[in-house]
Design a protein around this nucleic acid. Sequence first.
DNA 1: AGTTGCGCCTGTATGC
DNA 2: TGCATACAGGCGCAAC
Length: 290
Amino acid sequence: MPELPEVEHVRRTLVPHLVGRSLTVQTIGRADVIRGADGHRFRRSCRLLRQRLLDGGTVTCLGRLGKHLWIETEGGRRLDVHLGMTGRLTLVRPGRSLTGVPHVHVTWRIGTREQDEYDRLVFQDPRRFGCLRPFGNGAGHQWVILDRLGPDGLTIKARELEARMIARHRPLKAALLDQQIVAGLGNIYVDESLHRAGLHPLTRCCAVNREQYVLLGRSIRAILRQAVVHDGTTLRDYIDSEGRPGRFRSKLKVYGRAGLPCLKCQQPLHTLQVAQRTTVYCPQCQPASL
DNA sequence: AGTTGCGCCTGTATGC
DNA sequence: TGCATACAGGCGCAAC
Ligand SMILES: [Zn+2]
């Protein structure tokens, strides 16, 4: 599932094929995956909607914060892409037919240069937890979503973590899943980060000391960095914009390994429900603190 | 205000 | 063989 490393890898694989090219909206299969700044879903395709989906714009850059990716075009139009659980942003080669491909919600034609490999960009999402969200850069710029995100997980500092968490009573895991505290972590990388830091997922944020926040910050950055290097984690659905899976799955130390021996201490890993999510941890390496 | 729980959504895996 | 059920989980919102 796309968390920060997967989104960053998608961004990097899109850059060489999109920057400097124009986009033309080709099909809108489901307008309701497109949401306004206030969160409302569009009901149907119209000229205004295509305009807001960067129609006719030339791509200047692709940005990312946490799990949010955005495409920017000349003139300052921007489109926030959130992949949710099963969203994909993929490039398609000339001549390849998309008829019969399920859950294709939006397609763009790429104004190609000579020797370009791809001539279309596709947004697919079977589960539809993902969405496309146009926003601008004007005075009333609707950065609403991005404004609410905490510091990016790849570079967040221990002091930033501490400042945002120290007064909270929530379990560590619940806080780390909260995108307003740190942007980019999901279930997989929270479990990996806590295991690396040796912290129990149910530990109250307010019971964590400075030294432990330093360790936690280091762990989050290190895990995310390594995952980016390995092009992210593919469990089943995730592929990058060129159709390639990530290679970080075999590096996971706790996620998906319930009952198997801890790779640090050989004790069997346990599971818990925290914040409505399956949580895998090592009772020995991540002792509960009272 | 901080925190918790629920529902959305579909493909895959499991049980009877 | 086929149907029912459980599970996966990011996020917005309701409720405490
Ligand atoms: Zn251990």
